[in-house]
Design a protein around this nucleic acid. Structure first.
Lengths: 112, 112
DNA sequence: TCATTTTACTACGACAGATAAAGTAAATCA
DNA sequence: TGATTTACTTTATCTGTCGTAGTAAAATGA
């Protein structure tokens, strides 16, 4: 299980990634995250829905009511152009972040 | 500039890394972080000192008064055995975290 | 058919870590 | 001697995560 403080800066970006090709909704996103990460990251419901609200407030996604085929009525979210731009920025930032953190996190057990 | 939410889970670990071989103190750690990261990460003073307090509270470091050679009196910090163990755990976690996040953060501009 | 499970959220409050702002204090430097 | 650098400390605020609880409808099973 990876700590939530680490992932904190990337929950929104992860959601945008999963919305890239088609709209989706909370429950599905949550399962996708669990499956794709092989159970290594399971996002909390409240974290997920508060992320959706934040994303919508920032106009990175827009919501619409889906025709529910099963289960309760769903709220779908669609990524916006602004959301795609934000994602691309975060993608670049993540590349830099990895390099920076790698300079400070090394294995002292195996020399250097 | 990398965002603070990203680094949030690793500030303590970065400090422990820099204390690995010899004790140090706030101001020096802060400069080391800036230099090693080539200005890409500049830790805020308050963030740094609150991290030291947290580390000490958790017994990952212990403090002692140094003979100041210049400037104001310094509080030095020395990593403990518990701190080294914690660091090793975070080192492993970071490896896993990178792999997990990489599954969700890809460049849509270049195919794949 | 009725209860349980699964799907799909919403509301509220607490907490931790980052940070802005301001202040303190001693040594060095021009 | 006054500005700058070093070296912190205190206080208060903000954001994102998360625990707890509740709502609601469809699917599933006995």
């Amino acid at each position: 299980m990876i700590s939530s403080d680490v992932i904190r800066g990337y929950n929104d970006t992860i959601i945008l990634y999963l919305l890239w090709d088609q709209p989706s909704y909370g429950y599905e996103i949550s399962k996708l995250i669990r499956d794709i990460s092989n159970e290594q990251y399971v996002i909390k419901e409240t974290t997920l829905y508060s992320a959706f609200n934040r994303l919508e407030k920032n106009s990175y996604v827009e919501s619409f009511s889906g025709k529910e085929t099963q289960g309760r009525k769903r709220t779908y979210y669609r990524i916006t152009e602004k959301g795609r731009k934000y994602y691309q920025e975060k993608f670049l930032e993540w590349g830099i972040t990895k390099v920076v953190i790698d300079k400070f996190i090394k294995d002292f057990n195996k020399g250097e």
